[in-house]
Nucleic acid binder design. Structure first.
Lengths: 213, 213
DNA sequence: CTTTAATATTGACACCGTAAACATAAAGTG
DNA sequence: CACTTTATGTTTACGGTGTCAATATTAAAG
């Protein structure tokens, strides 16, 4: 006998697809909000389910975050791997990889922050995240190696080029996401999306040109 | 008549120096913890004062955060300004400025995160922070200009060099702070402080050399 | 000395993450 | 089919958070 009455207009006692619903809701929140807006309780509310229901699908909040990181790394990695196939010229591919990175941060700022600013307690627990992250890093490493193998390559240590490239685009992403920081540099001038894109283009170009003589 | 009994062993009803005490406690917490450990209530507890007492000195948590950002920018700016006087060679100074930045993040990671990862709702409200931030930016701009005025300077747009330099050291700081990210790059190898310092040295050197022919 | 302004307290509210005990439904087993 | 197990929900509760309103204490100003 079904004497249970759902809190929201739900048909059955079981939601049926709660895990995926929670993840999708979380992604929605990240699209139009900040990490601070993301709470398990809010997600539960959005799914019309009790506040502790999410704990049947995620050990704790961190486990949900890990999945969000994973989703982000998957999307970023996908875009980068496509470039590996599309663009043969190492230097030009390097530049495009950098722009992909910056554009990702531009389009999904909150998601980007979750990926890189939310520190997990024990990273080793989430090997799926570990695996999917490797894809992006492989693209970077492969492209760096190809650049350094160029006949006109500057004599640069492999790991220096790797760290340099990644640091450059990561810093660029963070700085460009932060309107107030940019305005300092631009001496109070308003900086719109066009300006930011132009800066990103120029800086990534500058870096790639620095790899060769 | 003093019929009031203090919650902790405090002499008088008024704390006397609560604002400074709260800031100092906050700085202590940032030295050995994360941003998540920082709560107004915890600070109040530490000062032996009721949980709403801090609101007599800070409009809200954000106002306290703004002060912490300010403290950090002041310390960073101080170190950078000293370098402006010490080191005459623009390129070498550029390199040292970068290392100062990275070392700051290394020594005060939580404080660094508060400064650059905690987004204020309305930045314009805290003009003291705005002013003290300008000092650091001025050092960067001045040094970039001197580098680009060098006879052997590469032909680079001023704002590109500025953004490039800042992006590079900022990204470097963030990446090096994040042990799990480094280990990806280093293919699982443990990366200690010595390794990180060496990477920072090499990458900043690489960038500075990229500014000249 | 009296009034006022600054500073602190208490109590409350709405959030949050999460643990324990319990309820329901679906899936597996005889 | 009935019966048990497992997966997936709910309720209730605890301690934590930021913050507001009303109140108390005291230092400073008149």
């Amino acid at each position: 006998m079904n004497k249970w009455c759902c809190p929201q207009g739900r048909k059955s006692y079981h939601h049926g697809n709660l895990r995926e619903t929670l993840i999708e809701s979380a992604l929605e929140i990240l699209k139009e909000g900040t990490l601070a807006d993301l709470s398990l309780r809010a997600l539960a509310r959005k799914a019309g389910v009790s506040q502790t229901a999410p704990y049947r699908h995620f050990e704790d909040k961190e486990a949900l975050i890990a999945v969000l990181k994973e989703e982000g790394m998957r999307k970023l990695g996908k875009g980068m791997k496509e470039l590996m196939a599309e663009e043969a010229d190492p230097l030009e591919r390097m530049r495009k990889l950098g722009m992909k990175y910056v554009e990702f941060a531009e389009i999904y700022p909150a998601h980007f922050k979750v990926m890189f600013e939310y520190e997990l307690q024990d990273y080793d627990k989430y090997c799926a995240l570990h695996d999917v992250s490797d894809d992006s890093f492989w693209c970077l490493q492969e492209t760096v190696d190809e650049c350094l193998a160029l006949p006109n390559a500057r004599k640069v240590d492999r790991s220096v080029a790797q760290f340099g490239a990644w640091s450059m685009v990561h810093g660029l992403s963070v700085l460009l996401m932060n309107q107030s920081l940019i305005e300092h540099m631009k001496e109070g001038h308003l900086v719109d999306l066009g300006d930011r894109n132009q800066i990103a283009e120029q800086v990534t170009k500058f870096f790639c040109e620095s790899l060769v003589k």
